[in-house]
């Protein structure tokens, strides 16, 4: 440890702690100097911050993973439905009717494209929301 006042102040100022925590540590440093009381408060502030980060992170990861899983599931179900529809529609067409088959396949590919865009947009939105909420909570 060091007794260098400037370094300790800089260490508190440049930390990732909240403004309130920084202020408390500055006060404690003014009051107790580099005594054990100060270092105990110093460690406690960081430990609390880590705990808070852990809780927020855990919640964010849970939300992200479970919601992403639901999006994946919805996409897979949509695809399954489209494939069944394709199978059904194409079965009714004469195999040599290339134009008729092309129109059915075009509709299928377009729907797949839409489902992919939907999945991608929902996933991006989920990420943005999760990140924003998490950052707000961490402070």
């Amino acid at each position: 440890m060091t007794d260098n006042v400037q370094e300790i102040v800089k260490m508190i100022d440049t930390s990732f702690l909240s403004d309130g925590d920084k202020e408390t540590l500055r006060e404690e440093f003014k009051k107790s100097g580099t005594s054990d009381t100060f270092w105990t408060a110093f460690h406690a502030a960081f430990e609390n911050d880590f705990k808070k980060r852990g809780a927020v992170f855990g919640e964010a990861v849970d939300t992200f993973e479970s919601t992403y899983h639901l999006l994946e599931k919805a996409y897979a179900e949509k695809r399954q439905h489209l494939e069944e529809k394709l199978e059904n529609d194409i079965g009714k067409i004469d195999p040599i009717n290339t134009a008729g088959k092309e129109s059915i396949f075009s509709a299928y590919y377009l729907e797949i494209d839409n489902a992919q865009n939907q999945f991608q947009n929902d996933a991006k939105e989920l990420y943005a929301e999760t990140a924003t909420t998490m950052v707000k909570k961490v402070g």
Binding site: T14, F57, F64, V135
Partner: peptide
């Protein structure tokens, strides 16, 4: 597309992790 989404998920997870833990680690 499958590969893109797999990459997206990995990037998002990395990014969320870094948002929370990078500052303490760097400090």
């Amino acid at each position: 597309f499958e590969q893109t989404m797999a990459n997206f998920k990995k990037t998002a997870q990395n990014s969320l992790t870094e948002m929370v833990w990078k500052a303490p680690v760097d400090y």
